[in-house]
Design a protein around this nucleic acid. Sequence first.
RNA 1: GUGGAUGUGCCGGAGUGGUCAAACGGGAGGGACUCAAGAUCCCUUAGCUUAUGCUUACCUAGGUUCGAAUCCUAGCAUCCACACCA
Length: 821
Amino acid sequence: MDEINFNHIEKKWQKKWDEERTFSVNEKSKKKKFYCLEMFPYPSGSGIHMGHALNYTIGDIYARYKVMNGFNVLHPIGYDALGLPAENAAIKVGTHPEVYTKKSMKNFTLQLKALGLSYDWERLLDTSDPKYYKWDQWIFLKMLEDGLAYQKESAVNWCPLCNTVLANEQVTNNGTCWRHEKTKVEVRSLKQWFLKITDYADELLDKIDDLNWPERTKTMQKHWIGKSYGTEIDFLVNGEKWPVFTTRPDTIYGVTFVVVSPYHKDFLKLVTKEQNKEVDKFLKKLNSVSEKDTVDLEKEGVFTGSYAINPVTNEKVPIYLGNFVVADYGSGMVMAVPAHDKRDYEFAKKYGIKIKIVIDPIDFELNNKNIAEAYTGEGTLINSGEFNGVKNEVAKELITKYLSNKKFGKKSVQFRLKDWGISRQRYWGTPIPIIHCEKCGAVPVPVKDLPVKLPKEVEFGKGNPLLTNEKWINVKCPKCKSKAKREADTMDTFVNSSWYFLRYCDTNNEDEIFDKKKVEYWSPVDTYIGGAEHACMHLIYSRFYVKFLRDLGLLSFDEPAVRLFHQGLIHAEDGEKMSKSKGNVVDPLITSKKYGVDSLRLFLVSVASPDKDFDWSEKGIEGSFRFIKRVSGFFKDAKIGENSKELDFEINNSIKSVGEDVENFEYRKATIKLREIFELISKEKEVKKEVLENFLKLLSPFCPHLTEELWERLGNKTLLSTSKWPEFKEMKLKEKAKFDINSKIVEDVLKIIKKYEEKGKKIKKVYFYTVPFEFDKLNNEKLKKGIGKEVLIYSVKDEKKYDPENKAKKARPGMPAFYFE
RNA sequence: GUGGAUGUGCCGGAGUGGUCAAACGGGAGGGACUCAAGAUCCCUUAGCUUAUGCUUACCUAGGUUCGAAUCCUAGCAUCCACACCA
């Protein structure tokens, strides 16, 4: 056999898989389907990085394993091609985002193919293709029909120098623009499009428990949706009812003020003339809407001049404007109980507002006059009129009932989850298919006119680029034919990725979003692999989309992915994050040129469990390389013949355990077993062909090129990649003769006695201490006869046993402890 | 602050009641091959010591058990996510 040139055989087999369309699939197969999906990449200009290599290797191993196990495996790839980074990068290098993205995707495809990934390339997806985003627009129109897409005023970050809206990520921690370090970002209100994901809040929450997803991801989603039960209470302000939401109606007697958010749409009604100036000053101080800097923001506020009437006590309490109140949660207004809420306490202390204790802790006394912090625990009501002495949990119910009887409140459920704002004042996204008519208002673009394509000719750097193309912007109203303008905002790119996994089932369909039958066949995704950073946004939006499309009658399942797996992060060798500026980036392609793709793949999954973070290690990949070289070296001059029974037994065991490990994404364990079994194989003088082939099959998902080559060299004409995973057979190494434990003990003990007596010690009695469940198996007669001494047998559990040197603790199953005398 | 996860030898990490001084890999040391280096292969890698031994060891302190890296309780430490949601 010739020496193996890794780079050479990689090209050879990649070409073969490509030409033979080895991994192309359709719905006609009689096999069971399996949909293995990795999160598609955002095609950046710098090509793939190690994280991509890891993500796609993990998926590829799984997909290949499933193919060999007789499944019809859908394993597609595509590009999340639209998005702000491409637009920024294009502006930077002075080219058009489309040109930039096309080039990046081409490069990505070459690089992904070089990793030997088993994709069905005929399904390659590109979200920047109008043939794809046409259906983004179609879904949007369907949502609009169902009232799930709507417009409302919403706060955005505005940079006066850029003259444009900034994404939260573009606002620095100091509240300045990312490009203008000295310019404070302003908050502006703009009319924007929202998707009513909150309509699905309950279902999104309830179905989480059924998902086979990592627990932490599930808890994160639960938090994100954040359902809380409470009471809506109406406070009267100038004779008008203003509702607040609270989870603590039991503290209603302790309300000493009310706080309203500065982003509340009607808060100006509350501001009196006298307070106008103060309020203005406060509003100017407010930072961007970015939530980053709110972490340790001091609570600040200002008196509005108005008062609210507590519906239970009829007390008049001042209304403040406060920077800590979230506008779009509840009603954007809260009742403040400083004695029993940390935030309210802080605020009250700062502005000298009265603190009134209404909950009496069970275990200790609160200093009535001057408490040092808010008491948020359980207790009994005090200072609460007719509710005094009631346990606070009970009081929640009673007070809510009392309020609803008086028509001043009701039970209420609130979600943290907000409607999804999808408007982006950017170019490189899906155009929102809306035409604004002077007479008819916002008119949907008729379906027959879809897609609304992005015009090529736009200018960048002057606000929203789409506004710079007059020809594109100015159209006639589809309804009344009078003058109208196109919506110039584009959609958030998370829209594109919310349903792409469905499109893979029918990527090239030009007539409809997808063939229902095809999606029915392949979906849902069986294993979805990607970064944990998407736990909330992408993975919730996708769930929402699936539910919506289901309700449209297009799908018959509820959830996008049955099983989810997160890969870990790869750090550089120094433990730092890999980044260009630090110069510690390891390029997967350069690495695979040096050691071969198979080494890289093997190394990536053998350092740590794939869901754990790990540091890159050059030594580590050399270790994997060494293994691969040893395997290929061994096969070069392996003698085919009979091998030991032990090897037959062990390889059979490996079939089972490697399979189980892969199934559970415990690749690291699988690679360890592969090393162990190879160690055994390489020690044999001759090995059965079947054993060698089985070993190659087990290694194949990890190192597809090398194994394919060795498989061929063993004389096989078909592809290893599509061969059948070996079968595990129930097998016993040796018929374990029912051998008597006593004779083994006799044998061992005699040896030891011999040594003792050689040293001149005399032994008369032997005491045995056996593990309780073996007590019955020891036979005094047999032992006595065999050893030729007096024998006493105790269970280690026996409290009356004679054991002067405490030897009993040495007892093991199969071998009792003993003591000589 | 809230929630989650983790803590094993020089390092990465298996092991989830007895067969554990603890898999596998990396590192280190020694040896073989070589004029030499590299590659490759073999051995060793808690200490005392060579014993059927003992001691110290799986974050710390207790506990359960005949027996704990493994189970329980408390504490400490690290990592991750969320973060003023009333």
